[in-house]
Write a protein that binds this DNA or RNA. Structure first.
Length: 401
DNA sequence: AGGTATTCACATGAAACTATTCTCTGAGTTAGG
DNA sequence: TAACTCAGAGAATAGTTTCATGTGAATACCTGT
């Protein structure tokens, strides 16, 4: 009986009409044929890179703007075009894109250079080699293939604050050196201030050109959403004012188009699950809530045990209080650790964990001074009431309390 | 009263340590000629 | 003698601990009126 039900469920699912026709168009990695509202920036990038077609040295470029302002998209789009022209004309030009933020991919000096060397067809083991060695084989590959390279370093700020500017310094130096192959660097960052902390030599070399991406306004986000929705959804599924509402939501805090797209996509999923033919305004509200909830649940389930214990301490201490302090949390954390028989971390470490939770947006931790009574973090949960109980039981399960 | 000095309770930084994963090297071992 | 095995040295990295130093403002402690 159950078997039958499951089977029909799948059959129904298959036949069910979805509001989506191509969900990919709403994903962050999707690169549309035309990029809206970034004409100026595209032009700038193109101007900078054009000389590379003729084998000339191009300026290193620094691109910055807040998240969801289309930096990566624009650069990728433009370099794709560049590469295709180069290919058509049989010019020796190669574009390499590296995301420095991806864990275990290019977030250290070794891994960055290894990644680049791999792009040039070298086999580099994930560890074991001296960094020097990796540099050497990267250089060798570079000089062997008489080609020009455009190297895009996305989220470059992450790289710097993890490992300093050593690698960047080396890279900019190669780009200045007169070897058979030219390399031009494009650094993408969403933190404008991060250049200030750079070695002056690196800074001047990297930001020979600077391109700024201002946030989109609500209208621009609307037209972007419309463009994507065109591909993503079937005709006529969008209810009145849906796009507008998504745009408004994203514009509310600094015009993040990525957020708007995610919202629209999740709203579509919500509508699908409810088996309705159109996406309504309520679906958006629901989607907004769902995104928030999923994020917290995800964090609660995937974080390492120690983090979970810290979070649990905060949650159980929060009951009926407005805010807590680091010392209190640590106290609860310590007794919890001995209760469930897990090694206790130092306060130093727990302090770091708390500030990581702050970054993730699970808690709000502000450093305050209580005068005579010291300086500490004022911690309060950012988890909505409705999700709290569920989060708590997830944590309880996970740490075997 | 007004001004200065203390003091608390952590924050923040840097360095060092630990454990794990991985490569490379060279000594010792094996098998075949 | 060539091929193979395997232990040991050396690297990179993540996650911590240890040590050192910093810090904002509520109080304590003056001082002169």
């Amino acid at each position: 009986m159950v078997e039958k039900d499951t089977e029909t469920f799948f059959e129904d699912f298959l036949r069910k009409k979805s509001v989506f026709s191509d969900k990919k168009a709403l994903q962050a990695s999707y690169i549309p044929e035309t990029v809206l509202h970034r004409e100026i920036q595209i032009k700038q990038v193109a101007n900078v890179l054009a000389p590379s077609l003729k084998g000339d040295k191009t300026s290193n470029t620094f691109v910055y703007g807040k998240t969801g302002t289309g930096k990566t998209l624009t650069v990728k789009h433009t370099t794709q075009k560049l590469a295709s022209v180069a290919e058509k004309e049989k010019l020796p030009l190669k574009v390499i894109y590296v995301n420095c933020k991806l864990k275990r991919s290019a977030d250290t000096e070794y891994r960055l250079i290894a990644q680049l060397a791999r792009e040039l067809g070298k086999e580099i083991p994930p560890t074991g080699l001296p960094t020097e060695e990796v540099y050497r084989s990267f250089f060798k590959a570079l000089n062997k293939q008489n080609q020009n390279y455009v190297i895009i370093l996305d989220e470059i700020d992450q790289l710097i604050n993890k490992m300093g500017d050593n690698a960047l310094y080396n890279l900019t130096r190669i780009s200045e050196e007169d070897t058979t192959s030219q390399i031009s660097l494009i650094g993408i960052s969403n933190d404008i201030m991060f250049v200030d902390g750079l070695d002056p030599r690196v800074r001047s070399s990297l930001s020979e050109e600077e391109i700024v991406f201002p946030p989109y306004n609500a209208l621009q986000i609307q037209s972007i959403l419309k463009q994507r929705a065109e591909f993503a959804f079937n005709k006529g599924v969008l209810g009145q004012g849906v796009i507008e509402k998504c745009a408004a939501y994203a514009a509310r805090d600094h015009g993040d188009a990525r957020r708007a797209m995610e919202l629209l996509r999740v709203a579509g999923e919500v509508a699908d699950r409810k088996n309705t033919k159109t996406i309504t305004l309520e679906d958006i509200d629901e989607a907004e809530e769902k995104i928030d909830r999923d994020r917290i649940m995800d964090i609660a389930t995937t974080q390492p045990k120690q983090y979970q214990v810290v979070l649990y301490s905060i949650i159980s201490l929060q009951r009926g209080r407005e805010s807590l302090f680091t010392g209190e949390v640590y106290g609860v954390y310590k007794s919890l650790c001995s209760k469930i028989n897990i090694s206790t971390l130092t306060q130093r470490r727990v302090s770091d964990i708390i500030s990581e939770f702050d970054m993730m947006g699970v808690v709000n931790a502000k450093v305050i001074s209580k005068g005579r009574y010291g300086r500490t973090r004022e911690i309060s949960l950012e988890i909505p009431e409705a999700t709290l109980q569920k989060t708590k039981s997830i944590l309880e399960d996970s740490i075997h309390i």
